[in-house]
Amino acid sequence: MNRITARRRHPLARYAVLLLALALVGGFYALLAPPSERADAAIASGRADDVAQGKKLFEQSCASCHGLNAEGSATGPSLIGVGAAAVDFQVSSGRMPMSNPGAQAPRKPPAPWVNEDTVRQLGAYIQSLGGGPTVPSKDQVDATKGDKAKGGELFRANCIQCHNFVGAGGALTQGKYAPPLHEATETQIYEAMITGPQAMPVFNDSIITPEQKRDMIAYIVGVREEPNPGGAGLGRIGPVSEGLVVWIAGISLLSLAAIWITAKKRQAHK
Rank of each mutant, 00 (worst) to 15 (best):
H66L: 09
G67V: 03
G67K: 09
G67T: 02
E71M: 01
G72Y: 04
G72Q: 04
G76I: 02
S78T: 06
L79T: 01
I80G: 02
I80E: 04
G81W: 01
G81S: 06
G83P: 07
V87L: 05
F89Q: 09
Q90R: 01
Q90T: 03
Q90E: 13
S92C: 04
P97M: 04
P101N: 07
P101E: 07
P106I: 07
P106F: 02
P106K: 01
R107I: 13
A111Y: 12
P112D: 14
V114N: 11
V114Y: 04
N115T: 12
E116F: 03
R120Y: 10
Q121R: 15
L122Q: 00
G123M: 02
A124P: 00
A124C: 01
Y125I: 00
S128A: 11
L129N: 00
G131C: 01
G131I: 01
G132F: 00
P133E: 08
T134V: 03
V135S: 00
V135M: 02
S137D: 13
S137F: 05
V141A: 11
V141Y: 02
V141P: 07
T144Y: 05
G146K: 03
D147H: 08
K148P: 01
K148W: 06
A149E: 12
A149P: 02
G151E: 12
G152I: 06
L154E: 08
R156W: 09
A157K: 15
A157V: 05
C159I: 12
Q161P: 04
C162T: 11
N164Q: 11
N164Y: 07
G167T: 03
G169N: 10
A171T: 15
Q174H: 10
G175N: 10
G175F: 08
K176E: 02
A178T: 08
P179F: 07
P179R: 12
H182Q: 15
E183Q: 14
T187R: 15
Y190S: 11
Y190M: 13
M193Y: 07
M193H: 05
I194G: 06
T195R: 10
